[in-house]
Design a protein around this nucleic acid. Structure first.
Lengths: 218, 218
DNA sequence: GTCGAACATCTTGTCAACAATCTCGTTGAT
DNA sequence: ATCAACGAGATTGTTGACAAGATGTTCGAC
C-alpha cells in the first residue's frame, strides 16, 4: 500500500486513474498533466506515467505536444456530433447482426433489461437506469459478435465522457430516451434486423439533437 | 546519412519502415520483432524502436506480449471480414455526407477519377487503377468532412494491408470492381445520398465475398 | 506604465547501464 | 528413449542522471 506501484502495473493504474478523474470532473479540458506531479500523486515513476499518457493519447483523451507535455483534450460540440454519427453507423451494424444471431438467453436478458428500465424510470432511479443503459449497449455488441466494432466503439467513447455527463443531467431525459431504448430491445429481441438498425439510428439522431441543443457555445 | 536517426524522429521513421516492410511482404505474420535488431537495422536506439512498436500495437499491426516482445499480428479471414463490415458502415456514412455537401470542384474531381479509372482498366494499368482507387476513397471521406470517421478508417486499414495485397492480385478483379466504383462516383457526384450509401455497401459486400472466397484456410 | 531582453526555473526528451525474465539447448536420471 | 531439471545466452523491463527546450519573471530602457 505504501509501496510504489511500479512499471507496467503503474502504467495501467495511472491511465485508469486519469480516466476516472475525468469522469468525476476532477480534470477539465485543457488542464496540464505534468509527469512528475502525476508520478508523485499516484506513487509511481515518471516512466510509468509517460507510457500511461501515450495510451491516453492513442485514445484521444489527452493531447501530447512535443516538449510541452500533455493536456486533457477539449472536444468541440461539432466533434461530439461526428463521434456520435460514427457510433450510430457502427451500432447499427451491431444491432443488425445481433437481431440475426442473438441466443435465446441474450434475447431474454434484453427483455429483462427493458422491463427493469421501465421500472427504473418510474421510480426515478437515475443510477440504475444509467447502468441498465450501459448494459444494453454492451449486450447488443456482444450478441452481434462484432469484436472489431466493439474495439472501435470503445475508442470513440473515450473523449465523450464529459458530454455524456452533461446529457444525462438534463431533466426528463430518461423519460425521453426510454421508448427509444425499448424500440431497440423489441427489434433485436424480435429478430428484425432492419427495424433494429432503424431504432438505433433514431435513438442516436435524438442524442445528436440533444448535443447540439445542450451547448450553443464552442 | 551515416548518422543515427535518434529519438522522436527515429520513432516515426521506424514505424513507417515496418509498415512499409509489411506492405512489401518482407515481414510475415507471427514474425518476431527484436528491439535491438531493429535498432541496428534502422540506425536508431532501442528507445525509439520501443516507442515505434507501441504505436504499431495501438494500430493493431503488431502484438506485444509482456516480457516476450512484439510480433506481427496475424489477421484471420473472419476478422478481415469484420473489419470490412466496419469500414462499410463508416464509409456509407461518409458517402452519404459527401453526396450532400461536396463542393463543385470535388464533384468534378470525382468524375475525372471515374473517367481515368475506365481508361486504366481498358489499358490494363493496375498500378494506376490502384492509386485512383485510393484517391477515390480519400476524396469521399474528405468531401464528407468526417474527420472522426477518417481517423477510424485509418486504424481499420492498418492490419488489412496483407489482405488487400492478395485481393488485388486476383485476375479480373479491376474489371469487376470498376462498375461498383463508378456507381459510387455517380451517386456522390449526383448528390444522391441514399444511392451513395447503397453503392458503397454493395461494393464492400462484394469485397467481403472475395475475402471469404480467397482464403478457405484459417 | 509598457515593452522587450536576459535570466532562472520548470518540464520533457534521451540515453546507457543494470535487473528481471524468458528461451532453448544440455545433461543426467529413470 | 523420454523427461525433467538446470544453466547459459538472449531479450525485454526499469531506473536514474543528464541534456535540451519551454515558461515565466525580473529588470531596464523608453
Amino acid at each position: 500500500m505504501t509501496d510504489k506501484l511500479t512499471g507496467a502495473a503503474g502504467r495501467e493504474y495511472v491511465a485508469n486513474a486519469i480516466r476516472q478523474a475525468l469522469r468525476a470532473g476532477d480534470l477539465v479540458p485543457g488542464q496540464r498533466l505534468v509527469e512528475l506531479d502525476l508520478a508523485e500523486a499516484y506513487r509511481t515513476t515518471r516512466g510509468a506515467v509517460r507510457e500511461a499518457l501515450q495510451d491516453l493519447a492513442a485514445e484521444d483523451i489527452v493531447e501530447i505536444v512535443p516538449r510541452r507535455g500533455a493536456r486533457i483534450r477539449a472536444v468541440s460540440v461539432e466533434e461530439a456530433v461526428q463521434i456520435t454519427e460514427c457510433r450510430s453507423a457502427l451500432e447499427q451494424l451491431c444491432a443488425r447482426k445481433a437481431a440475426g444471431r442473438a441466443s435465446e438467453e441474450q434475447r431474454a436478458e434484453l427483455r429483462r433489461i427493458g422491463a427493469d428500465m421501465r421500472q427504473a424510470v418510474a421510480d426515478g432511479a437515475w443510477e440504475v437506469y444509467s447502468a441498465l443503459n450501459q448494459r444494453l449497449h454492451e449486450l447488443v455488441i456482444e450478441a452481434g459478435g462484432q469484436e472489431v466494432a466493439r474495439r472501435q466503439l470503445e475508442r470513440l467513447n473515450g473523449p465523450m465522457v464529459r458530454f455524456q455527463f452533461r446529457l444525462a443531467l438534463r431533466p426528463g431525459r430518461p423519460a425521453q430516451s426510454l421508448p427509444q431504448h425499448l424500440a431497440i430491445i423489441d427489434a433485436v429481441a424480435g429478430a428484425d434486423p432492419e427495424a433494429a438498425a432503424r431504432a438505433v439510428a433514431a435513438h442516436l439522431d435524438d442524442v445528436i439533437e440533444q448535443l447540439r441543443a445542450s451547448a450553443p457555445r464552442a
